[in-house]
């Protein structure tokens, strides 16, 4: 009797959440395929003989929220410890989406590559429950976008 409502919300959250996740992954795969030739690396320097004609900071950020189903399963997992498997695809999506947005930022400004790529994450506190709850997680990808001097651009 008392468990009926939460169970219903749990089921709705599961079906909607699964559907949205599937769709997001499809979109990510498609856009990653389009961005495949674009170099995105974590080196903080360019090779010695390369020169850049211009460079700038580019970033991509995404804020994701936990659905009720994932939250409940993670809560159960939290009792005994171990991999929170329901959060893994969530954060994987966030990372890849942030990097994709960063690439889109760089491309739209005509850059050739992004160096020194870093990922950062932070928790957004929930306004309710004295900030104890988690409203969502922000994933930020940033790096130095570089426009190569012309001969390298040709060499590409």
């Amino acid at each position: 009797m008392n468990f009926g409502m939460p169970l219903l919300i749990l089921m709705i959250a599961y079906f909607i959440g699964t559907h949205l996740e599937k769709r997001h992954f499809q979109s990510i795969l498609k856009r990653e395929d389009e961005a495949r030739g674009f170099p995105v690396v974590s080196f903080d320097t360019m090779p010695d003989n390369w020169t850049a004609s211009r460079s700038d900071l580019v970033s991509g950020s995404v804020v994701i929220s936990l659905d009720y189903f994932k939250r409940v399963i993670a809560g159960l997992r939290g009792l005994i410890g171990g991999r929170i498997k329901t959060y893994e695809p969530l954060l994987d999506r966030a990372r890849r989406e942030a990097v994709l947005r960063m690439i889109e930022d760089a491309r739209s400004q005509g850059y050739d590559a992004v160096f020194n790529v870093r990922l950062e994450t932070s928790r957004l506190a929930n306004a309710t429950r004295n900030g104890k709850g988690t409203a969502g997680v922000e994933m930020l990808a940033y790096g130095t976008a570089v426009k190569f001097a012309s001969r390298f651009a040709n060499a590409q």
């Binding site: 030739g37 159960l76 498997k85 329901t86």
Partner: peptide, 27 residues
Amino acid sequence: VARQPKEGINVSDTHPLVEAGTLVVGL
């Protein structure tokens, strides 16, 4: 040659419902 990274490295294969079932029954 630029290739797509392999899928599923950072994501477990376990179906969320299997995970939920295991946790609920075990706990």
